[in-house]
Write a protein that binds this DNA or RNA. Structure first.
Length: 585
RNA sequence: CGGGGCGUGGCGCAGCCUGGUAGCGCACUUGCAUGGGGUGCAAGGGGUCGGAAGUUCAAAUCUUCUCGCCCCGACCA
């Protein structure tokens, strides 16, 4: 490909109000342009990178035995109503009506459609297992799109769905996908961690996320260096490190006035106590009725863990208006002592496991404008074993559940997610099959997703330097670029063309920069685009029959005879790729 | 959804406070020179200031409304 034939509007200056480096580079490299919030054009070179990621994904999916299909972006409401997700999904699900006033939505995911597809044609265990995947556009009307392709509203996703006769067979599909994902992300040159997304006690289902480690990642993950345990902070189970607790300052139970102190911060300030000596009560609404989470004032609640512990389908914070229907007590004065009496309709009260039994705490008194101090956990209020759960969000300093070592917290970009679904969708949608003894059973499903654009951008985020992108050859927009010191010089030009043809014959994806610009400008663009190998043809080298060659990730360039170039590139690329596959975090 | 910010040639910005119908850099066009890290000089083209209404003799500038985009936060009581 010749540069003059490509629409690649590179930018010299940084675009305004763009925070993340990879997003900035995508814009500067002329790979993407914004159309609306969270909606982008992919320009030729941006698309080229995306296609290369897709090619790797396809290859590994096919190798793992999945078959490619293509399902629609527009889904009829009926399918989503069958699983209840038409109602339970919020505004993220973009709904609209067609000319006949029928309800539709833009697909944020495809469990309903693929389950419908399978149930129409699969009757027997003999037809199973099946694993179908697609690389397709999704639309999720995100509250707050940001960071370019990282969190767009319209985005490309690879999603696979497996259908099996039983759990055991399902686990094989799950493991095959897991292995494929590890290969895919390694081949894309990504430093990633596979983390637990669910601790695995709900209906035997299991889920793991693939996190690319990056400071700018939107997700937090805990990692245990000593045993390797990794999990999404929201879903991680961790133990309290007792050494983080302040010394007890109360000796006896006492009722104190706190007329204007509603938040933990305010109470702590007024009563001169340490946050680790306070307890707070968070109220939520569920389909079973209001529920309460009791946890230390300095800890955050993991809503996901809370919901799981409650085994609730829906969970949202209780509004002040709702609270007023149940109780005279207002937010800010609610505490664990006599909670059930204060709010008689509470369905469940769960205590966080970081509450220390016997320790004296400062708590809301369930009387407006009053707190108790010196309340003993487990004595002044009961904490039955079945009520105590790990519902706090993991924090730095917490201890590993498995080996008791201190955990570290890292940031990551979620590029892939694999999930054992069980029979949730197959049961809701009657996706059944006849097994060997003539019994009808729901299929056991799994789903597996990769954000294609996000994977590409994560690779950029991890690889960049001051000059631009540093991409692995497998996903760089070009493998090789040829720059000519003076394009109009016929001797140099013909040498460059010769080199260009040779490399193409050897199967390389080559860019010939045929623009009549200063060398400096051309080199800047080559670096910005992250092209893996750069060759410079000029008089200086040609006098000695040499070409300047440089790999994007190396500091120094080398002078090589033209007939050595192909082998040199080959071994350079192989070394790099090998490094990715064996990279250790 | 709450808070904050921004919207002026393709891009990045100044002008707005203290109204008098637009300016800079980059990019673009033409010419000459240059050619190993965004080359120099010269001559050009392009915007009515997100939109609407209002105040005024006069609005990019003041007021109100509206649209769009970006950032932060989001029920932690």
């Amino acid at each position: 490909m010749k540069y003059s034939n490509i629409h690649c509007p590179t930018l010299k200056e940084d675009p305004a109000s763009v925070e993340v480096a990879s997003h900035r580079l995508l814009l500067r490299a002329g790979m993407i342009r914004q159309v609306a919030s969270g909606i982008y054009d992919l320009l030729p070179l941006g698309l080229k990178v995306i296609r290369k990621v897709e090619a790797i994904v396809r290859e590994e999916m096919n190798r793992a035995g999945a078959q490619e299909v293509l399902m629609p972006l527009v889904h009829p409401a009926e399918l989503w109503q069958e699983t209840g997700r038409w109602e339970s999904n919020g505004k993220e699900l973009l709904r609209f009506r067609d000319r006949h006033d029928r309800d539709f939505c833009l697909a944020p995911t495809h469990e309903e459609v693929v389950t419908d597809l399978i149930r129409k044609d699969v009757r027997s265990y003999k037809q199973l297992p099946i694993n179908l995947y697609q690389i397709q556009t999704k639309f999720r009307d995100e509250v707050r799109p940001r960071f370019g392709l990282m969190r767009g509203r319209e985005f490309t996703m690879k999603d696979a769905y497996s259908f099996d006769c039983d759990e055991e067979s399902q686990m094989k599909a799950y493991e095959a996908m897991k292995a494929a994902y590890e290969r895919i992300f390694s081949r894309c040159g990504l430093g990633f961690r596979r983390v637990h997304a669910d601790s695995g006690n709900i209906g035997g289902s299991r889920s793991e996320e693939f996190m690319v480690l990056a400071k700018t990642g939107e997700d937090e993950i805990v990692h245990c260096k000593s045993c390797g345990y990794s999990a999404n902070t929201e879903k991680a189970r961790t133990l309290l490190n007792p050494s983080t607790l302040a010394k007890e300052s109360f000796e006896s139970l006492e009722l104190v006035d706190t007329p204007d102190q509603k938040t933990i911060d305010e109470v702590v300030k007024k009563l001169q106590v340490h946050p680790t000596e306070t307890l707070k009560v968070l109220l939520y609404q569920t389909e079973k009725g209001p529920v309460a989470a009791v946890l230390p004032g300095h800890r955050d609640l993991s809503e996901i863990a809370f919901q799981r512990a409650l085994q609730a389908q829906n969970l949202r914070p209780l509004s002040p208006e709702e609270l007023a229907q149940y109780s005279q007590v207002q937010f800010g004065s609610i505490g664990p002592m006599g909670l059930k009496e204060a709010i008689p309709v509470l369905a469940d009260i769960l205590f966080d496991s970081t509450i220390v039994e016997g320790r004296r705490y400062c708590v809301g008194a369930n009387q407006n404008g009053k707190h108790y101090v010196g309340v003993q956990a487990g004595i002044d209020f009961a904490m039955q074993a079945h009520q105590v759960h790990q519902i706090h969000k993991a924090e730095v300093g917490d201890l590993c559940c498995d080996c008791n070592a201190p955990l570290q917290i890292e940031r990551g970009i979620e590029v892939g997610h694999i999930f054992a679904l069980g029979t949730k969708y197959s049961e809701a949608m009657n996706c059944n099959f006849m097994d060997e003894d003539g019994k009808e059973k729901p299929m056991v499903m799994g789903c597996y997703g990769i954000g294609i654009g996000r994977t590409a951008q994560a690779a950029i985020e991890q690889g960049l330097d001051e000059q631009g992108m540093v991409l692995p050859p497998a996903i760089a927009p070009f493998e090789v670029v040829i720059d000519v010191v003076k394009w109009k010089d016929e001797v140099l030009q013909s040498k460059a063309l010769e080199l260009y043809e040779t490399l193409r014959e050897h199967g390389y994806d080559v860019l010939l920069d045929d623009r009549d610009q200063s060398l400096g400008a051309k080199l800047k663009d080559a670096d910005l685009l992250g092209i893996s190998c750069r060759l410079v043809v000029g008089h200086k080298g040609l006098e000695n029959n040499q070409i300047e060659a440089k790999l994007r990730w190396e500091k120094e360039a080398q002078w090589l005879a033209p007939d050595k170039i192909v082998d040199w590139i080959k071994s350079g690329f192989e070394k790099k790729q090998q490094a990715f596959l064996t990279a250790d975090l």
